[in-house]
């Protein structure tokens, strides 16, 4: 085939270039720009090289936030993935009004704006008028004051997170389960497989793809979580629920320390990228028999 050379064709990729530039590249470069300079005011600045990076890598508050973040994301995955799969397994398998109703109910938390979620839980957990707070404080007789007790703050944030996001895992797992042909269940039945064996050897392997996506999404989202805990606890009491992004915002906007915040952002970005890559590679190989 005769190819005609026409450089005007480059204009066709322009929209995508612009989109990626404004969407990802320019913001990222702005951050890189901040991270290598010490900015005093709008006219005075100095190039400091990797100083902010060195500084942030020796910052104990960052390490504590990082550890907190890993504990949080770890708990999120440990709770939400098994719980989501368990709920998906109990959902109706045939099309009908029951299925539609269940799906709508399950999807409901995902449709609520994030700051509204935080607000809902602030009210829900109030010991005086909140349904759950009042129940714990008065009916169970446990003194409940999550804004001052770190353990209670953690439990509250976890509860809110699980309530908000388990639905996503449920929907993905349910989609995976529905895609399994009936013949698999029939064959397993003929082979005398127990319910556990059906789960272990049919349902779980067949859900591998969707669960990979679920784990990746839940890891990334929970690792970047900001709005809901910020509304609920503001990172407190003390810094007990200060996760990476909350710390980052405090640094960048609260203290206007954009050099440190820039370096922090880049490190943060690298961590998310590295972990997502490792997760993805590992999950691609689970159950396929590849060893390398």
């Amino acid at each position: 085939m005769q190819k005609t050379l026409d450089n005007r064709a480059w204009f066709l990729v322009l929209p995508v270039v612009l989109l990626v530039a404004f969407n990802a590249f320019i913001p990222l470069m702005t951050v890189v720009n901040y991270s290598v300079q010490d900015i005093y005011d709008s006219t005075h600045r100095a190039f400091v090289g990797a100083d902010w990076y060195r500084d942030m890598l020796h910052n104990h508050r960052l390490y504590r936030a990082l550890v907190r973040q890993f504990v949080f994301s770890g708990l999120v995955l440990l709770i939400e993935v098994p719980l989501g799969v368990a709920i998906a397994l109990t959902m109706p398998k045939k099309d009908g009004w029951a299925t539609s109703l269940t799906l709508v109910l399950v999807a409901l938390p995902l449709l609520i704006p994030w700051n509204v979620i935080g607000t809902i839980w602030v009210v829900f957990l109030r010991p005086d008028i909140g349904l759950l707070g009042h129940f714990i404080d008065h009916t169970l007789g446990i003194h409940f004051d999550y804004p001052t007790v770190p353990m209670q703050a953690w439990i509250s944030v976890m509860l809110m997170e699980v309530w908000h996001w388990t639905s996503l895992v449920v929907l993905l797992a349910y989609a995976g389960l529905r895609a399994i042909p009936d013949a698999y269940y029939q064959a397993a039945h003929i082979d005398g497989a127990s319910a556990w064996a059906v789960f272990r050897y049919i349902q779980l392997p067949k859900m591998r793809g969707v669960l990979t996506i679920a784990i990746l999404l839940r890891f990334m989202d929970s690792f970047l979580i900001y709005t809901e805990p910020f509304v609920l606890t503001g990172g407190g009491p003390g810094d007990s629920t200060t996760f990476l992004s909350i710390y980052l915002v405090k640094l960048a906007i609260g203290q206007f320390d954009v050099g440190r915040a820039g370096a922090f952002s880049i490190i943060y970005f690298m961590i998310v990228l590295a972990f997502s890559y490792v997760f993805y590679q590992a999950l691609q190989r689970v159950g396929t028999g590849e060893t390398k």
Binding site: P181, A183, Y184, Q186, A187, K206
Partner: peptide, 11 residues
């Protein structure tokens, strides 16, 4: 029973 599409346990 042998089905139309092969049923095997993938893992």
């Amino acid at each position: 029973q042998v089905f139309q599409f092969p049923v095997i346990y993938d893992t």
